[in-house]
Design a protein around this nucleic acid. Sequence first.
RNA 1: GGGCGAUUAGCUCAGUUGGUUAGAGCACUUCGUUUACACCGAAGGGGUCUGAGGUUCGAAUCCUUAAUCGCCCACCA
Length: 876
Amino acid sequence: MQIPNKYEAKLVEEKWREYWDKNKIYKSSVNIAKEKFSVVIPPPNITGILHIGHILNNTIQDVYCRWKRMKGFEVCWVPGMDHAGIATQIKVEEDLKKQGISKYELGREKFVQKVWDWKEKYGVIIFQQLRKLGVSVDWSKERFTLDKGLSKAVKEVFVDLYKKGYIYRGKRIVNWDNISQTALSDDEISYKEQKDKLYYIKYPIVGEKGSVVIATTRPETMLGDTAIAVNPDDTRFSSLKGKYVILPVVNKEIPVIFDSYVDMEFGTGALKITPAHDANDYEVGKRHNLEFINVLTKNGKINNNGLDFEGLSIFEARDKILRRLQQEGHLERIEEYTHNVSVSERSGAIIEPYLSDQWFVSMKKLSEPAIKVVEEGKIKFHPEKWTKTYYYWLNNVRDWCISRQLWWGHQIPIWYNKNTGEIYCEVEPPKDIENWEQDQDVLDTWFSSWIWPFSVFGWNNSENDKQNLELKYYYPTDFLSTAPEIIFLWVARMIMSGLEYMKDIPFKDVYFHSTVRDSKGRKMSKSLGNSPDPLKVMDDYGTDALRFTIIYLAPLGADVLFEDKNTEIGRNFITKLWNAGRFLIMNKEKVNSSDEFGNDEPDYNFTEKWIDSRFNETIKEIEFYLNSFRLNDYAKSLYSFVWSDFCDWYIELTKVKISTNPESARKSISRALDIYKKVLKMLHPVIPFVTEEIWHLLNENVEEKSISISDFPVQNENYINPKTEKIFETFKDLVTTTRTERAKFSNINNYKYNIIVKPLTSASRENIDQLRFSLKSLINNKGDIIVENSDSKFNGTDGEYFSVMFDFTNGIPQIKVEEIENKNTREIESLKSYIQTLKMKLTNKIFLEKAAIDVIEKEKQKLNESKEKLDKLSKM
RNA sequence: GGGCGAUUAGCUCAGUUGGUUAGAGCACUUCGUUUACACCGAAGGGGUCUGAGGUUCGAAUCCUUAAUCGCCCACCA
């Protein structure tokens, strides 16, 4: 049989992508005979390109989907995309700008059509990239947050919440972006340090001589001042109770109010209150029933509340007002000042706090049951620490502003009567539409994603839902993997909507994956240009290599530093796996079907016993790790089994047998093949392509379609044998020590040394021979190995332990292997450390067997003493 | 300012309820191409587990404290 000596990831991967697509391997349908495992993808933005965080998140989901599928679950992984309101709108606006077109020229309808055109053209890119990653999603179930069904669901939810009184219209200071002409959410703004000036302005006290000095960076907003505030505990101002001050420039009397919000330490301790242009002032204004005077237009000019400053830009107005203050003698002084200003992440505009009408969802009632389901453990967070963040946020929940001044998105299903001003809120537009005007705003993008776990299955808030088999079967979903940053934006809200509309949790386990950072620990970001291009990494190293590496490196609950070069871990491992497969395939022909080890045969010797034990233990481990959401340990466990146990020892020993005992070798290879195939299955969830490829190379004539629908191996406890493993460890120790010693003497010509192996209980002749040959080969055929016979026999189970001893007394190094009588484990452990001591003494060439025994005796005594102590203690 | 977390080998990190000799990968040194693999094999060097106290027969692990760093949230006129 031919097997290429190099694994060509690129060719192989595309072959299997096509195969999986063509055979619809990952298509899911309702099958009540089977237990289901359903996952909805966190929908990537249509503007998105795959970044390293996506690789991690989607590989995590794929590992679980593939694993559960192999374990016999009906797995359904729903792919989809998010329309990403503002991000997409800005992208299209930019494109149009390049052509010299503004969205206002086009008008709303045509502009939205342009966005749809753009979506058709570029929206598929992220899917193509996900496909490249090898995700086992059911493509036939693809959803988009703006498609018909989902739009209907969004409207249903809005109308329902409105009718329940959860949705209300309110004033709110929004983050206004003058350039994009839209309100931004807090998450769409960032802070930038900026040098500014702090102006100290005198407000004369009415009916008194003095004045109160306040400090501000925004003098132009004083046009909208409706009070000044001081801290009630601030004795400097206690005489001002009930007093008024004159607002300079405007020449209006405004009250002095007392509010603990004011920081006594900052500035002068007195603060001007502009409720319409500052979020905190707004809160203060509400507490004290102040007037809200808006002095700005939507494009950042002074409006008609701004006296003769009307029409000026913010900066023009600032200059003019400062001059006026100067003239009137109200400007006390100016200081240099560095502070943070908020900036739009998208357009770079400085954010203007702006009071406007917005729609809100009242969150208090919705959040209570959402807290409960997490407290009760119905939904589990992994790692658990995120529950703290979750509780903190939900206990301090603020109402959700859901309106956005955009064109791309779900337009709010509210109509205003042109004549009466009456409000109409229904899923369908009013019949006499000509008398109504629809609200111009669209809904926050999260308003469609918060119902994602049920809307994707066709939920539409009608009687049909009860007949909707998919909804009934797949909801609640089982697993959600996402970034901790959106725990509140998305995860918490999905839990609320799920409980409200499905009367059930939306998912059972939530996995918060690591944040991927660059090698210097910085967050990956476009502006830093430090984000590796995953597509290039996939081309350079192979998709499996990247998948394996990222899972291997990302522990539960910690950040992961990543650079391209790391991917060598995965690539090298895959090469190793591939070559082990080559070795087995090359030797496969030597194997007859009858060459299987019977487990009771004498030939089922301790090498086989050992690998069986290690292997079954590995199955057990990975099962545990996957169930505990410790994916990196899952990867590590297999990595070390394949490399350290299977390749370095088992296959190497098999080679020894090939030259010494062909009969036994055939059986070992047969055993190795059996284990290897199972290992492929165990690795398939994380490295699907290469395992599929080797699987088919190994199973040329076998009926099985794809490794991804084969059975996942199950451990057999009976094979797990700690004693055998210990014996093998000692054997390894013996070999290693011998090699070490040999290396030291390798410079001295032909230094001869013997190894004396004193076999343990009930050893068959063959076993002794095998042990001898193994040793001889593994230490490179130098020196003699003397295997002594003994009355007791070796079988690897009755013998508890070997001790390794060295003797230099004749000038010829000798190594003795001796059994130590049955001891309890703890004692054996401690004795083992003396073997180490002995080794050290050996290197110093001052070893005396007797001394060693003395030391052992001494230690035994010590152990007994501490045991007695323990006994005493436990009796107390 | 509020909350969370970290500090272990040159680098990136494991170390599961306290218990043998603190592990792995990369990097480094030496040796080696014996027909799976140089994207390899063998061997080796390298750690007072951030500092200081404490609990314990025993602490990287638990407690107190200090220092340094990181993240999330809020944000000062």
